Measured scan of single mutants.
Amino acid sequence: MTSCHIAEEHIQKVAIFGGTHGNELTGVFLVKHWLENGAEIQRTGLEVKPFITNPRAVKKCTRYIDCDLNRIFDLENLGKKMSEDLPYEVRRAQEINHLFGPKDSEDSYDIIFDLHNTTSNMGCTLILEDSRNNFLIQMFHYIKTSLAPLPCYVYLIEHPSLKYATTRSIAKYPVGIEVGPQPQGVLRADILDQMRKMIKHALDFIHHFNEGKEFPPCAIEVYKIIEKVDYPRDENGEIAAIIHPNLQDQDWKPLHPGDPMFLTLDGKTIPLGGDCTVYPVFVNEAAYYEKKEAFAKTTKLTLNAKSIRCCLH
């Protein structure tokens, strides 16, 4: 018999989150649709729960009410004593943790798909938090293969000092899905179709896995975050240069030392320094102006996964 890495157990509980950011409308629209008619997301033997994560922000069509829901799922915020004085999103995070967690427990949901849009030209993107997770690498390989020839990129946010504390991190297997470009507060049919297909293929993978299909060893190309880059700023902290036209919409493309990065209003080009080629992502993302992030630098690498098969009882 072929030796293989056996994944822990079959997958039982899956959640699909929309509206973690209330103005990213593809996930909101799909989740609302699936709450009314969820036939397309159901798979035999699998509990799939669509869920609106930040209903107040969705109602106002804004990213958040008090603070970013997708950055506060750490033990400090989840452990705060519940009171009306807490920011709305912290209270909501505790409610979500109660419903789908608790985080880092045996009772937490197996998989959470968190649906997002970006204003950046990132196409279909899967966000991975753990480079050693054979199950998710296999799932992402399946999704990428199923979507081809449509490109699907994998963004690895594993980093020693950049801690995200994402909404989906309460699950055993957290999956971020990011599709763009799409303006905030807008629905685009092409973007919706791409996100819908990503979810379909992900659920198909889980179904095949649960039925005992063995997935042979595989490898995927990923883009691992190195650092986030702020806009150049003046002495008052105001933005002093904008994304250069040569960099705009060039997510995932190589940016070499000396290539144009920013452009000042008086026409001066600010190039990339250093001696390493990087791959920019979230270029000129609207939501990241407040976070002082013009783009993120990534490096390209390959992740390998062992063969996996479900432990059938």
Rank of each mutant, 00 (worst) to 15 (best):
S161R: 14
F135L: 06
L69E: 09
V28P: 09
R91V: 12
S3I: 09
A219H: 07
T298D: 00
E211D: 12
C67E: 13
E40A: 05
F282V: 02
N97W: 09
T302M: 10
Y223N: 07
L46D: 01
R91Q: 15
K172H: 08
G101N: 10
D68V: 04
W34V: 02
S83I: 11
T302N: 07
L301F: 13
R92W: 05
Q94R: 07
L150V: 12
P87F: 14
T269A: 07
T298I: 03
T20D: 02
S108Y: 11
A165K: 07
C152H: 00
L312G: 12
H244I: 00
V278I: 15
T118A: 12
T118P: 04
N121D: 04
S307M: 07
E84T: 15
K60N: 07
G27V: 02
H33P: 01
A148D: 15
E158I: 03
D275Q: 15
D130F: 03
F29V: 06
L156C: 07
K228L: 15
E221I: 02
E129Y: 10
S161Q: 12
N133Q: 05
L126K: 00
S3T: 08
D68F: 04
T277D: 10
G180R: 02
E84A: 09
S307E: 15
S161E: 12
K292H: 15
E24H: 13
I143N: 00
Q194I: 11
T298N: 01
T125R: 00
R196A: 05
E47G: 12
H313C: 13
C310R: 15
P183F: 01
I220V: 09
P257G: 04
I157A: 15
I16R: 02
G212Q: 05
N117I: 02
G267E: 06
E9S: 12
M139I: 02
N23M: 04
Y164N: 12
G79R: 06
V154H: 01
H208S: 12
P102N: 12
I72G: 14
W252Y: 07
Y289W: 11
N37M: 09
T2L: 13
K306T: 09
T20R: 02
H244Y: 02
V283L: 13
V14F: 01
L203P: 01
L136H: 03
I199R: 00
Q184C: 07
L150P: 01
I239L: 10
